[in-house]
Amino acid sequence: MMHTGHRFGQYDIVPLLDGVFEAPADVLIHAAGDEARRRLIEKRGGKGIRVDVNCFVLRGPDGITLIDAGAADAFGPALGKARAALQEAGIRPEQIDRVLLTHIHGDHALGLFDGTAPWLPRAEILVPEVDLAFFTDPAARSAQPEGKRGPFDIAANLVRAYAGRLRPFPNGQVPGMPGIEALPLPGHTPGHTGYLLRGAEDSLLIWADTLHLQDEQTADPDIGLIFDTDPTTALRTRRALLEQVAQEGWLVAGSHITGFGRVRRAGAAFSFVTEG
Rank of each mutant, 00 (worst) to 15 (best):
M1I: 11
M1N: 11
M1Y: 11
T4N: 13
R7K: 13
P15V: 04
L16K: 05
D18W: 03
V20D: 02
V20H: 10
F21M: 09
F21A: 04
P24M: 04
L28R: 02
I29Y: 01
H30Q: 05
G33P: 08
I41G: 00
I41R: 08
I41M: 12
I49F: 01
R50T: 06
V51E: 01
V53G: 00
L58M: 13
P61I: 06
P61C: 08
D68S: 15
D68G: 10
A72Y: 08
F75G: 02
F75A: 07
P77I: 02
A78F: 09
A78Y: 05
L79A: 10
A84T: 15
Q87H: 15
I91G: 02
P93Y: 12
E94I: 02
E94L: 10
Q95W: 12
I96W: 01
L100G: 04
L101M: 12
T102E: 03
T102C: 11
I104S: 01
L110E: 13
L112N: 01
G115K: 13
T116C: 07
T116Q: 14
T116K: 14
W119Q: 05
R122I: 01
A123S: 12
A123W: 06
I125Y: 02
E129L: 09
D131H: 07
A133R: 14
F134D: 05
T136P: 08
R141A: 13
R141F: 09
S142K: 14
A143L: 12
Q144T: 08
Q144S: 13
Q144K: 11
P145Q: 11
G150M: 11
D153E: 14
D153K: 11
I154M: 03
A156T: 07
N157L: 15
V159D: 01
A163P: 07
A163I: 06
L166P: 03
G172Y: 08
G172Q: 05
V174I: 14
A182H: 03
L183P: 00
T189P: 03
T189L: 06
T193A: 05
T193M: 01
L197P: 00
A200S: 14
E201V: 04
L205F: 09
W207A: 05
W207I: 07
A208D: 13
A208N: 05
L211P: 01
T218K: 02
A219T: 05
P221E: 09
D222G: 08
I223R: 03
D228W: 02
P231Q: 06
T237W: 10
T237V: 10
R238P: 09
A240H: 12
A240D: 15
E243S: 12
A246K: 07
Q247C: 12
Q247H: 14
Q247G: 15
E248S: 12
E248I: 00
W250I: 07
V252P: 00
G254P: 02
I257C: 04
G259K: 07
G259N: 08
G267Y: 12
F270P: 02
F272P: 00
